[in-house]
């Protein structure tokens, strides 16, 4: 049975949360991980929609440090007041 966008988004969010401060994850890292975990219950399109959901509701943000990553919202070190 296919996973819902919300279920995949939650699983991705947990991955990002666990990796925060340890490893920066790219969107494709999340997509590959979901396909590995859920197999045929997910596809790339569904995973992309889950990422969009995570970003649109503000649970995660895109960041750029030499490449684009997905992280939890946080104050970056370079930021000035």
């Amino acid at each position: 049975m296919a996973k819902s966008i919300e279920e995949v988004a939650d699983a991705m969010f947990n991955m990002v949360k666990e990796a925060q401060g340890v490893k920066k994850l790219k969107p494709m890292d999340l997509i590959k991980a979901m396909i590995q975990i859920y197999g045929e219950e997910v596809d790339k399109k569904l995973c992309k929609m889950a990422i969009k959901e995570l970003i649109n509701n503000g649970r995660c943000v895109y960041t750029y440090f030499g490449g684009s990553f997905i992280e939890l919202p946080h104050r970056e070190g370079a930021a000035n007041d």
Partner: peptide, 9 residues
């Protein structure tokens, strides 16, 4: 590396 507008990367 974080600033942007909502929804866009």
């Amino acid at each position: 590396g974080i600033v942007g507008v909502m929804g866009y990367g």
